[in-house]
């Protein structure tokens, strides 16, 4: 079974900080072909030496017009990577950088697993809120988060 699973391709899309280490802990044992979509920082740069990583624009918090511009760039780059790689499954732990990959992936008929970041217990993250209606599997790390996302599955913290 493990052998056979090697045939599918997985896109792991998330921000470069805590979200990234959560995503790694969730997926490190998967034997499938994997590639990563994130933004550039020292940790992700280090990781990219041994793994296939695409760096895309981070729509960071800033002046509205500039943020809009960064978002548009992020969407174009996300689409470009998606069409080039054609993954079967997208796994995301969220934040703004990954939203475009998740939504465009769904539009192109890919499967989507979203894991709400462990920092959210009683409130919802913005990306979780956006992606919840689309996700094929939506996982939360804390029981109280099930109140916010009733269709979610409880998975326990990715420590």
């Amino acid at each position: 079974m493990g052998e056979e699973k090697g045939k599918i391709k997985i896109c792991i899309a998330c921000s470069g900080g805590g979200h990234f280490s959560e995503a790694l802990k969730a997926t490190e044992k998967l034997k499938c072909e994997k590639y990563y979509v994130t933004y550039y920082n020292s940790a992700t740069q280090e990781f990219s030496r041994k793994n296939r990583v695409y760096f895309i624009t981070h729509p960071r918090h800033c002046f509205f017009i500039l943020r809009l511009f960064l978002f548009i760039r992020n969407i174009i780059e996300s689409l470009f990577v998606l069409l080039k790689e054609k993954p079967d499954l997208i796994i995301s732990t969220g934040a703004d950088v990954a939203v475009a990959t998740c939504i465009s992936g769904k539009l192109f008929g890919k499967k989507l697993i979203y894991i709400e970041s462990g920092g959210y217990v009683t409130s919802k993250s913005v990306s979780g809120r956006i992606i919840y209606p689309f996700a094929d599997l939506f996982i939360v790390q804390w029981e109280p988060a099930l109140k916010n996302f009733p269709r979610a599955t409880y998975g326990g913290p990715l420590f």
Partner: peptide, 19 residues
């Protein structure tokens, strides 16, 4: 005493959907 089953959830999702 915390455990995570998230890797298992992903694994069984993949098995169910793709295999």
């Amino acid at each position: 005493n915390y455990k995570t089953v998230i890797p298992d959830l992903i694994d069984s999702f993949i098995t169910q959907v793709f295999y």
